[in-house]
Amino acid sequence: MQITFDQVSHVYGKGTPFERIALHDISFMIPSGSFVGIIGQTGSGKSTLIQHLNGLLLPSAGKITLGDTVITAKQRLPHEQRRDIGLVFQYPEHQLFEETVAKDVAFGPSNFELPEAMVDARVREALEIVGLDYEKVKDRSPFHMSGGQMRRVALAGVLAMQPKVLVLDEPTAGLDPEGRNLILEAIYRIHQEQKLTTLLVTHSMEEAARYADYMLVLAQGKVALQGKPDEVFMQAERLRELAMDVPETVAFVSRLNQMLPDKEGLPNSVYREEELIAHLLERLSVPKEG
């Protein structure tokens, strides 16, 4: 689903002493099927931005287009369309409430009045996607699971609605490296298999570099930079101004290039780990004689 923001602003607490402009004149266009990394410091407006995507917040000014649907200050998103946009909040495990994992995951699809057999099938499928064994976990209480497992149950709860757009607010916050990888790989897999449009909010450049094919960098409620990851990472100066680092791969390439003669440097556009490794191996392998 193509997503367009056209000069969107959002003001919290309008007309009170607590008034705060959280988004200011945001414009961008995301083609259907992209994997977008949204990066920015805490308080830069990331969470505010994504809550506009399924109508939880309405823009104070400007226009949002989701596929064929338009959202403006006066035009809400119809209830049935919420299902197309799967929004996974920060710390989603705090929203679990059912006695069993299966019931909790079924909450979303049941709210859209699907037949029971279909709901069951979706619950099973969603739990498998996030790497949990349906038979083993379905009757367990979500409150007795580990933090990482709870988070994956919560993610399954959104996937079970089979959204066309998946939006995740810092899905890896507070997880150990293993839990982080499990979640991210599950997200990437489902993104590719079901051709979703995915928006991943993160403050880790590494995560964005690994998966995103488009990046939005937010600072103080404005879009500071946007473009393909290599274009964004080229602006190392600007990123540093925004108190953000380039990913380690990019830092590594630029340091390596400083040591190499000009012509033999690696291309600056390399930022994915696998790509970098491939380049290095190619350089290091001894050409076969003969």
Partner: peptide, 13 residues
């Protein structure tokens, strides 16, 4: 507020 939003996102009315 957050919980209401999250459950609304899961279709609760």
């Amino acid at each position: 507020d957050k919980i209401i939003k999250a459950q609304t996102a899961r279709g609760a009315n």
